[in-house]
Amino acid sequence: MYVAVKGGERAIDAAHAWLAEERRGDPAVPHLSVPQIREQMALAVDRVMAEGSLYDPDLAALAIKQARGDLIEAVFLIRAYRTTLPRFASSRPMDTSAMAVDRRVSATFKDLPGGQVLGPTFDYTHRLLDFALLAETGVPPAPTAPAPAEAMPHVTGLLDRDNLIEPEPRCDDAPGDLTRSPLELPADRALRLQSLARGDEGFVLSLAYSTQRGYGRTHAFVGELRIGRVAVEVELPELGFAVEIGEVELTECETVNQFKGSRTEPPQFTRGYGLVMGQSERKAISMSLVDRALRWQELGEDFTGAPAQDQEFVLSHCDNVQATGFLEHIKLPHYVDFQSELELVRRLRAEATAASCPKEAAE
């Protein structure tokens, strides 16, 4: 029997008030400001922007503060806010070869035009707690002057020059937009890359790892990983030319993958690609591995049944906001559903008892 729940509104208001207290923490400790989060938790901010599909470091930092550091909740807040914003223009395709590079490494060539730039990275640090940070003062260090930019062509161009890697797959059709239209399967590569770019980093990382362990046809080298700022340009019909409206930080990864060739194609390397807003090299590398695994059909390869090759599995489960909504709805009231299940189980048990012990049931 269904019984109406009473007093729920007061309980919810109290829960909200308690949540606000928990978010603030000990009042004796200075509050964490949005600029502090933006500047000192930049990688968390970048992840929220990437998975929230909105490039705004201040709003991402605000969402992290409001969500008490729960990045998936922060992504949810950003996506919800983005739906309220008008769309007044679409930018031109960004030229990542003109990127103002902060970090640029290659695992395939040691000497590169423009050189390798280690940049800010944990790759060469010892994974030991730095207790000196506990005694950090609020005095900011002196800023360092940025190094002059140098032309850095893409590494895959070196292989492309000798026809050792497949031509860059191109499509002249306007790409779809997952922020405005729901995903439809089968999805073309543009939509797959969009879905992976805003997918959960942990999920995409796990899929990429599975391809390296043999669940897919991926044995990749990082042709190039670059992080830096790229100009954003918008075509203005009134002017008849493009105008630069700002710049965004991007992480781009191109992987070089083995390919034995086919009856129509000579042996050559193939490509995997990842592009993520902000500094998120783990996500970009993972993207490129999964992208390559999903291209098995267009490259004439066999489907081995690996999860990373199944675009329905990958694209339907990589979105953390969608997954969270479906997962967390089961903690909401399901009293009527459970009562019907409970009644069914009791009836089935009674029938089973009667069938196995007819004499006892008769008594």
Rank of each mutant, 00 (worst) to 15 (best):
M1K: 12
M1R: 13
A4S: 13
R10M: 11
R10I: 12
I12G: 02
A15L: 10
E22F: 14
A28I: 00
V29D: 09
P30A: 15
L32Y: 04
S33C: 11
R38L: 04
Q40S: 13
L43W: 05
V45Q: 08
R47K: 13
V48K: 04
A50G: 00
E51M: 15
S53Y: 02
L54I: 06
D58I: 08
L62P: 03
L62S: 10
K65A: 12
E73C: 08
F76Y: 10
R79P: 11
A80C: 12
Y81Q: 09
R82A: 09
F88D: 11
S90V: 13
S91N: 02
R92V: 07
R92N: 05
A100H: 11
V101M: 03
V101I: 11
A107M: 13
F109C: 10
V117D: 00
L118E: 14
L118Y: 12
T121R: 03
F122G: 07
D123H: 12
T125C: 00
V139E: 11
A142H: 01
A142N: 02
A145W: 03
P148G: 05
A151C: 04
H154Q: 15
G157N: 07
L158Y: 06
L159N: 08
D160F: 09
D160E: 15
N163S: 10
L164T: 00
E166L: 14
E168W: 14
E168R: 14
P182C: 04
E184C: 10
P186M: 02
D188F: 09
L191H: 04
R192I: 05
L193G: 11
S195Y: 13
G202T: 07
L205N: 05
A208L: 03
A208M: 05
G214R: 01
V234S: 01
P237R: 14
E238T: 09
L239H: 08
G240Q: 09
V243P: 00
I245C: 13
V248S: 08
E249M: 14
E252H: 12
T255M: 04
V256K: 00
N257F: 06
F259E: 01
K260C: 02
S262C: 09
S262F: 14
R263I: 11
R263V: 12
T264D: 15
G274N: 02
L275Q: 00
V276W: 01
G278W: 03
G278S: 03
A284K: 03
I285R: 06
S286R: 00
V290G: 04
D291S: 07
R295T: 07
G300Q: 07
P307G: 07
A308N: 12
S316D: 13
H317F: 14
C318K: 06
D319Q: 03
Q322A: 13
F326V: 14
F326E: 15
F326D: 15
E328Y: 09
V336Y: 01
Q339M: 08
T353H: 15
T353G: 15
A355E: 14
S356H: 09
A361C: 05
E363F: 07
E363R: 10
